[in-house]
Write a protein that binds this DNA or RNA. Sequence first.
DNA 1: CCGATACGCATTTTT
DNA 2: TGCGTATCGG
Length: 764
Amino acid sequence: MSIDYISELNANQFAAVMYNEGPSLVIAGAGSGKTRVLTYKIAYLLENGYNPWNILALTFTNKAAREMKERIGKKVGERLAGRLWMGTFHSIFSRILRAEATRLGFTSKFTIYDTADSKSLIRSIVKEMGLNDKLYQPGNIQARISNAKNRLVLPSAYAASKEVCERDNADKMPAVRDIYSRYWERCRQSEAMDFDDLLFYTFILFRDFPEALEKYRAQFRYVLVDEYQDTNYAQHTIVSELSKLSRMLCVVGDDAQSIYSFRGANIDNMLDFPDMFPQTKIFKLEQNYRSTQTIVNAANSLIEKNERQIRKAVFSEKERGEAIGVFQAYSDMEEAQIVVNKIVEMRYSKGYEYADFVILYRTNAQSRAFEEAMRKRAIPYKIYGGLSFYHRKEIKDAIAYFRLIVNPNDEEAFKRVINYPARGIGNTTLGKIIDSAISRHVSLWQVIAEPATYGLDISKGTLSKLRAFRELIETFMEMQVEKNAYEVGVEVIRKSGIMNEILRGDTPEDMSRKENIEELANGMHDFCSERLEEGNTNVSLADFLSEVSLLTDQDLDKEGDDKKVTLMTIHSAKGLEFPNVFVVGLEENLFPSGMAESPQAMEEERRLFYVAITRAEEHCFFSYAKSRLRYGKMEFSSPSRFLRDIDTCYLSFPEEAGISAQVDERANNFRNKQRDRKIVFSPKPAASHTLKRVGVSSPSSASRSSSPLPDLQVGQMIEHERFGVGEVMKIEEAGDNTKATIHFRNAGDKQLLLRFARFKILNM
DNA sequence: CCGATACGCATTTTT
DNA sequence: TGCGTATCGG
């Protein structure tokens, strides 16, 4: 399996792939084949003396990691690709932290708190400290703590830092430092790490345990990082530490697409990279393979207006393409209509599919008008963002049970399920439990495990309710030793009363909650069977949790998504591409956002617009409305300054004539629409996250005992439940653990444990 | 302890 | 406008 690097890469890409003598910085313009460079480079390293486990490749999203792994798998085989240390910062670091947990005073079963957990814990701390929660808003505090952690500032250093504290004082929040310190301790007491801790503790691990640092330095002989412009200080520091001796560090990114500074991303990590790593070799990828010349040039003319950037000359050799159409509308409703009309028209006149269109906006609230316009004309669409699967109440409740079973010290999980479903343990009791726990420095669970020891002053009746609850969780805890995640999950859903609770009602919402729970169970089933099939026996509830807590809804594929118009914020469009892009709501105070006041913030908004434009392959359109409904009030707006940043020769305005009718008619129209707005309300279609439905049997028990191993021979064709049709390439006899290598038409080579695999043999 | 009603607030969000 | 949290009455 030899790869023809020279013919499959352009000169700069080739040079970047081949240079492996020291640190390198690949500045990759939009659509210039950044992922291509990374995949070929890793393939090249694998072909030239690197073992997969010697390579650490870090991304920001699971999706990016998955896709890259797949592409590498196609080149060098899944076997090798599967053993790469490739994943998100958070997932790779959590893997390391679970292995090294004891050094840091944790166990490998630590919980990962999501942002909601963090805020909820902060809310209780604020309350306990008797602070004014109008002043100390959980979200705000959480952001401050997160910032501190991203800058590797411990609570002690935070309290000692004049600068930070003065800022807190100025904002009338002098107690933030105390909240931070309490928050830190409470997380430790709960054996929990928040997202930022996954980075922070990795840093601490390497700082305080030289033998750990040495071990991982020796292992990761080559470190690669995708989207480097989005790294924060903590990530940057850890990566630097790891590659300090080997000096084999390759970072790839585009400073013009840095749009996450509000999350701590620091563009300087990229801009100053050559200064920080002496003898850095810089490669620039400037040929854009995605968009027409017009689109690339328009984007260039925009980004030129930014001060702070690495100058580059992105160019396209695709056709010139059409100018960017600019639409003016009188209201947000009309804007939506115009866009939808245009989509319909292009679909007929140019033969595009619905899936070839995306509507990009600055804020989620803007989606509503477009949703309505699409529904009216029966155009299929899908919307990204909003409530993710894992953030739905019923899912969080079920997962809270799982968390508590795996790590009973998990305070947030405890608080969530102690009285759900209602079992007569209210806030008063919970408050007492918390008080005891705090004063004795133990977890909530420890208090109810030994109420007498920790002086819990409650009535006999409540005490027995608590005991019942404890015993319930304890049965699950015993169960998880033997049974897999799916089996325990189903038991929990049944026995905890979650299912009863949900089955009580019969409103559409209740039905959807029921479906979601079923989906969760299906997801757990898939999790177990997928792993078992591939010979991975780590299918406990703890294994499931450690994976699921780092998943987002972006990681779930939805059924039938391939024939729909896409609606999303520009942020979530990063890394994607579409034939036709509508960038909507180009108005002052909306895009750029009214919150962007500093010049730096304005530059980031401009980069955001740059990202939006460069998603387009063939056609790009802009639109703005002169008035729009905001928070139920009408507001008037003027066109975005960004429209003036783009060289007018790439724009075409005639579209605006097409829509304006007589003034009277317009007003009339407008009034009608205002009326419609009230009458034509229908709820958002529930996003259907469809995990494939599978049999009701449990993955372990069903196939293990009853059915004998299928009689499979090399050369036979099979149809697998998930991977589709494939040919049997090889069979490794090993009794119960007989493995087959199957070459799937669409999924590539897979090794399956026959004992678990779900497929049928096709008759030829 | 639960549900109903009032109030206040409101970018973007890879993990 | 419309959601999520805070508070009150049963």
